[in-house]
Simulated scan of single mutants.
Amino acid sequence: MSLHALERAKRLKEIGQEIGREGMSKRVIAAVAEFDGSYKGAMVLAGRLKAISQMANADDYWRGKVEDGFNLECWK
Rank of each mutant, 00 (worst) to 15 (best):
A30S: 14
S25E: 12
N71S: 10
G41E: 00
V44G: 10
M43N: 04
L45A: 07
E14T: 09
E34C: 00
L45M: 08
E34S: 01
I19F: 00
S53K: 04
I15H: 00
L72F: 05
Y39H: 15
R11M: 12
V28Q: 02
K50F: 14
V44H: 12
I15K: 03
K26I: 09
I52E: 03
G41M: 00
R21G: 01
K40D: 10
V66L: 01
L12T: 01
I29P: 12
K26W: 13
W75K: 15
A51H: 11
I19G: 01
S2K: 11
A51N: 13
W62S: 10
W75S: 14
A33L: 05
N57G: 12
Y61Q: 11
F35R: 10
F35P: 11
S38Q: 01
K26L: 14
R11E: 11
D36H: 03
G47K: 09
K13Y: 04
G64M: 09
N71I: 09
G47L: 08
G64S: 12
L3N: 06
V66A: 02
S38E: 02
G23L: 10
Q17S: 13
R63W: 11
G64N: 08
R21Q: 02
D59V: 03
L72T: 07
A9G: 01
A30T: 14
A30F: 11
